[in-house]
Amino acid sequence: MSLSLFVLQVVNGLEYGLLLFLVASGLTLVFGVLGVLNFAHGSFYMLGAYLAWWLSERTGSLLVAILVAIPAMVVIGLAVERLAIARLYARDHLSQVLLTYGLVLLFNELQRALWGNDVHGVSTPRALAWTMHLGETQTWPAWRAFTALACVGIGVAMRQIVLKTRFGMRVRAGASNAEMVEALGIDVRRLFAILFSAGTALAGLAGMLAAPLTTVYPGMGESVLILSFVVVVIGGIGSIKGAFFGALLVGLADTFGKVLLPGFASAIVYAVMAAVLLWRPRGLLGPAFEGR
């Protein structure tokens, strides 16, 4: 492998990992704070991608589409939280798995009914439709760089919010002991709703950013969902930092796997996960709460 090809794989892996981080961070927070294992999280990624495609066809611009679609995702998140997820807070994992599995089926049918089963390409905005050179032979699309930068920006913002604001303090408190937070008189319902819809919007945004890179197709949410689970398991449930490093690890493993061992790329990621679990059954940055 030449140096420039190696560098290309590294930047591709990091960019993919960052995208996974957007999805996985919401998943890990929703589980850590709300205590709900949400299988429908991948559907939000799919919905985001489809909205990006559909709206950019209408408006002619992906950026406008994204600006419209993000509030839409927030609304979808709020609705799903109120109508379905809120009924699961006191229920066991099996109920959570099954109800959110039902939501996955529902969203898949919704996608089929609204947009059909065709694969759609999404064109990148003209301002970002150029490529940059990596070494002598390789090029890297500007959209990927934009995606990576956007993810880094969101990651940094999330860190600031979680560590420096009152809301973030409540989120952290909720992650370690939600009952206590409620006992202190904080409106947990509101906190949960905001957090869930934020997670929904992040997963949707990841889908929107990925749409020009991967095309938009049925079932696209599921592979991302499962990889996000792997990320969360590797990083430790409830840990944003863990999700960050887990996502980069999975992104790199997947990208290099595709080059070095084509055909087994998907399996490599799971092998990494099995290795991490053998070493640390609660993930790299596993949480302190035992009961969940």
């Binding site: 589980f31 294992l37 994992h93 798995v97 689970f229 792997v230 969360v232 398991v233 449930i237 679990l277 059954p281 609660r282 993930g283 969940r292």
Partner: peptide, 8 residues
């Protein structure tokens, strides 16, 4: 793994 980790 136990609990929710086992599921995943």
């Amino acid at each position: 793994a136990t609990g929710v980790y086992f599921i995943m």
